[in-house]
Write a protein that binds this DNA or RNA. Sequence first.
DNA 1: GATATTAGAGAGTCTTATAGTCTTTAATAG
DNA 2: CTATTAAAGACTATAAGACTCTCTAATATC
Lengths: 130, 130
Amino acid sequence: MKYSKATNYALHTILNLALSKSSKPIGVQTLAEKLNVSPTYLSKILTKLVKEGMVSSVSGANGGYSLTRGWESISFLDIIFAIEGKSSLFECGLDHGPQCQIQKVMLKSEEKMEEELRRQTLADLAKTSE
Amino acid sequence: MKYSKATNYALHTILNLALSKSSKPIGVQTLAEKLNVSPTYLSKILTKLVKEGMVSSVSGANGGYSLTRGWESISFLDIIFAIEGKSSLFECGLDHGPQCQIQKVMLKSEEKMEEELRRQTLADLAKTSE
DNA sequence: GATATTAGAGAGTCTTATAGTCTTTAATAG
DNA sequence: CTATTAAAGACTATAAGACTCTCTAATATC
Ligand code: SF4
Ligand code: SF4
């Protein structure tokens, strides 16, 4: 069980966008170079973030990507959910009701992690990284 | 990112062993039937648990698997680590030192989850499941 | 000691998910 | 109209997960 590379790329790209003071959008070409990853692949990842409303994109010459207003409150969890999906890490397929301790424990522990990821926002990240 | 099915099987098998009052070891055949999984596959999983010292096995007629003494203090995390490995969920490959906020956040959140999984022992599980 | 029974080890297969490429289409600035 | 850039879709490649089959080692029972 690992986070996908795509999640890694998404986090780094968003951090790059947050740190860029430019008011102009940044092209995927530029972003991809920093991460040493192919532009078309990164483009797919960015499109997911656009669909979740964290990033805005503009086509055409001088186009590119930028964070949407309100970006400061985007959390790590938002980004991770956008890439990995929102479903639970533990899925047994069955449902043996409320007396099932296994599921209870697994879900609670997962919730602890998510709580922490939800607490960490881009604002915090940008502040301590600049 | 999901837990593997093997982890699911391991948790359920260990729970089965914990709930079985029998002093005799239980064969993989029997255990596999309850989970509806192939015995040889489950056997591989059990072998991992044996190597981690949580389960003891005895070959030969009337052989099988049983929990080792001290099983009450085995935690969910122990079982999960035995199957999934102990390495971090987030690995970026590089190491940009202590100023890297991304890794810091990811590791801390992971630690929160593990903390909770460490707290939940088989003793708790067996008590509430019997 | 022979035989039946059961775990362990290893190689090999099947399937699925991740990671990535290539090509085409849509939007937009100049 | 043309250059530039994002979006979409189909496709391929690689890797990991989820098994299966077969053979070997241990052990209880007779
Ligand atoms: S016991 Fe719990 S974890 Fe196991 S199959 Fe039933 S609901 Fe799922
Ligand atoms: S910035 Fe942090 S997470 Fe990113 S590559 Fe460097 S060490 Fe890894």
